[in-house]
Design a protein around this nucleic acid. Structure first.
Lengths: 138, 138
DNA sequence: AATGATAATGAGAAGATTTCTCATTATCAC
DNA sequence: GTGATAATGAGAAATCTTCTCATTATCATT
């Protein structure tokens, strides 16, 4: 299944690649390269951090995963669901919610047009506190 | 003038701080810490890179400058104009345009409310190619 | 204007994230 | 199975940023 996606990307089907892709699919969430590395180590895999970075970058180029550059250091990766979406990030607990707003998408196109830009990509991240009690203390 | 802003922030008025703030005001654009450092060196100032980072972070906390985390490494800083705005960045030549769209701002509030988030901050960056000929080659 | 408490500086070390190098190993078309 | 080639893992290195600490500058008080 996912193995064919790897092959279609022009990459050989190797254990590290299958493990990383499976992990991202299983986890569903937004994992950093180091998260992926540690989880695989915990699961008893022998894998190098350099391989994780390399493979994630290759998957990104191949369109299998999407990289998000949230504030504060590490990039995080998620399986490319095929449908673009933006993110809400809780700055207290780290919870990430996804959303897609047609109005915002349309306005962006209009703005780019006004400035003579051709959009290649965009990143909208809303940082805030989610509704959990412990995320709303002073 | 700007010296009072430094004092109001609870910081002593020192040569490095005045130089950095003046440079950001004069330049107007979006400069990285290293840009600031190199320009000041070129102007014959004696300043350390650590001081530039330290001062920019202090200015950010004080609300004098705003930090932008565009893709690809370094943070860039600009004088806080007082009015929030988002950015269009040309991925070819690096040109940065600023915009503010009331519709997008309102939609963000609605989305945060729907998810139970209290917005603290947000970052919207549109990456694309600007209308210069050399930025639209394949 | 001199003094002294305190904050700020500059230089280099160190931390954090990511990429590179290269010898060894695995994949896969034949 | 074999061999050409790609991929891996380990550590070095690159990049950006922060930390440490001895020295220096600021500024309220004299």
């Amino acid at each position: 299944m996912e193995n064919q996606d790897i092959k279609k990307a022009g990459l050989k089907i190797t254990l590290p690649r299958v493990k990383i892709l499976t992990l991202l699919e299983k986890h569903g969430g937004h994992l950093s390269a180091e998260d992926v590395y540690k989880i695989l180590l915990d699961e008893g895999e022998e894998i190098g951090l350099a391989t994780v970075y390399r493979v994630l970058t290759q998957f990104e180029s191949a369109g299998l995963v999407v990289r998000q550059n949230f504030e504060g250091g590490q990039s995080v990766f998620e399986i490319d669901s095929g449908t673009h979406h933006d993110h809400l990030v809780c700055i207290k607990c780290g919870k990430v919610e996804e959303f897609l707003d047609a109005t915002i998408e349309k306005r962006q196109e209009a703005i780019a047009k006004k400035f003579g830009f051709t959009i290649k990509d965009h990143a909208l991240v809303i940082y805030g506190c989610c509704d959990k009690a412990e995320c709303n203390l002073e």
